[in-house]
Simulated scan of single mutants.
Amino acid sequence: MIQLLVMAKSPVPGRVKTRLCPPCAPEQAAAVAAAALADTLRVAGTVPGVRHTLVVDGDHPAPPGWARTPQRGGGLGERLANAYADCALPGAPALLIGMDTPQVTAGMLGEAADLLAAGEPVLGPAEDGGWWALGLPDPAAAAVLTTVPMSTEQTGKLTLAALRGRGVRPMLLNRLRDVDTAADAIEVAALCPPGHRFPAAVARHLPRAGVRA
Results as ranks from 00 to 15, higher is better:
residue 46 T to Y: 04
residue 139 P to W: 14
residue 30 A to R: 11
residue 206 L to N: 10
residue 86 D to A: 14
residue 55 V to D: 07
residue 201 A to M: 01
residue 57 D to W: 05
residue 16 V to R: 03
residue 168 V to E: 11
residue 164 R to I: 11
residue 178 D to F: 14
residue 58 G to M: 08
residue 13 P to T: 08
residue 109 L to I: 09
residue 39 D to I: 06
residue 55 V to M: 08
residue 51 R to C: 09
residue 167 G to P: 03
residue 73 G to S: 12
residue 40 T to I: 08
residue 131 W to T: 00
residue 116 L to P: 00
residue 156 G to L: 12
residue 118 A to F: 03
residue 132 W to F: 09
residue 116 L to W: 01
residue 112 A to G: 02
residue 174 N to C: 04
residue 49 G to W: 01
residue 84 Y to A: 05
residue 187 E to T: 14
residue 76 L to A: 11
residue 172 L to Q: 12
residue 204 R to N: 01
residue 32 V to M: 07
residue 4 L to I: 04
residue 21 C to N: 07
residue 33 A to E: 05
residue 12 V to A: 04
residue 66 W to A: 15
residue 181 T to L: 11
residue 83 A to Y: 13
residue 16 V to D: 01
residue 105 T to H: 07
residue 130 G to H: 10
residue 195 G to H: 12
residue 25 A to P: 03
residue 151 S to F: 13
residue 92 A to V: 01
residue 57 D to S: 05
residue 97 I to K: 04
residue 125 P to R: 00
residue 14 G to M: 03
residue 134 L to P: 00
residue 202 V to N: 00
residue 91 G to W: 11
residue 136 L to T: 07
residue 173 L to W: 02
residue 182 A to Y: 11
residue 66 W to H: 12
residue 163 L to H: 02
residue 39 D to A: 06
residue 74 G to P: 01
residue 158 L to D: 02
residue 121 P to L: 06
residue 9 K to D: 08
residue 124 G to V: 01
residue 153 E to Q: 14
residue 188 V to P: 15
residue 45 G to D: 04
residue 18 T to D: 00
residue 130 G to A: 13
residue 179 V to T: 15
residue 25 A to C: 05
residue 151 S to L: 15
residue 191 L to N: 13
residue 169 R to C: 08
residue 114 D to R: 07
residue 80 L to C: 13
residue 77 G to R: 15
residue 1 M to W: 03
residue 182 A to V: 13
residue 91 G to Q: 07
residue 51 R to V: 15
residue 14 G to R: 04
residue 123 L to C: 09
residue 31 A to T: 01
residue 114 D to G: 14
residue 42 R to H: 10
residue 137 P to V: 06
residue 116 L to D: 00
residue 96 L to C: 14
residue 211 V to Y: 01
residue 53 T to Q: 12
residue 132 W to H: 13
residue 208 R to S: 12
residue 172 L to D: 06
residue 163 L to G: 08
residue 121 P to I: 08
residue 84 Y to E: 09
residue 22 P to G: 00
residue 115 L to D: 10
residue 41 L to N: 14
residue 194 P to H: 04
residue 133 A to S: 14
residue 30 A to S: 03
residue 156 G to T: 12
residue 75 G to L: 05
residue 187 E to R: 06
residue 67 A to D: 14
residue 101 T to S: 09
residue 175 R to P: 02
residue 161 A to V: 04
residue 113 A to H: 12
residue 48 P to R: 11
residue 207 P to K: 15
residue 15 R to I: 00
residue 149 P to F: 02
residue 67 A to K: 01
residue 80 L to E: 05
residue 67 A to H: 06
residue 111 E to Y: 05
residue 17 K to P: 02
residue 161 A to D: 07
residue 41 L to R: 10
residue 94 A to M: 05
residue 210 G to M: 05
residue 118 A to H: 07
residue 145 L to Y: 03
residue 26 P to G: 06
residue 102 P to T: 02
residue 169 R to N: 09
residue 39 D to T: 01
residue 137 P to M: 04
residue 122 V to A: 03
residue 133 A to F: 11
residue 139 P to R: 11
residue 139 P to N: 09
residue 190 A to F: 04
residue 173 L to P: 00
residue 142 A to D: 10
residue 26 P to N: 05
residue 119 G to N: 02
residue 69 T to E: 14
residue 82 N to S: 08
residue 90 P to R: 00
residue 19 R to H: 03
residue 74 G to S: 10
residue 148 V to Y: 13
residue 164 R to H: 12
residue 180 D to I: 07
residue 50 V to G: 11
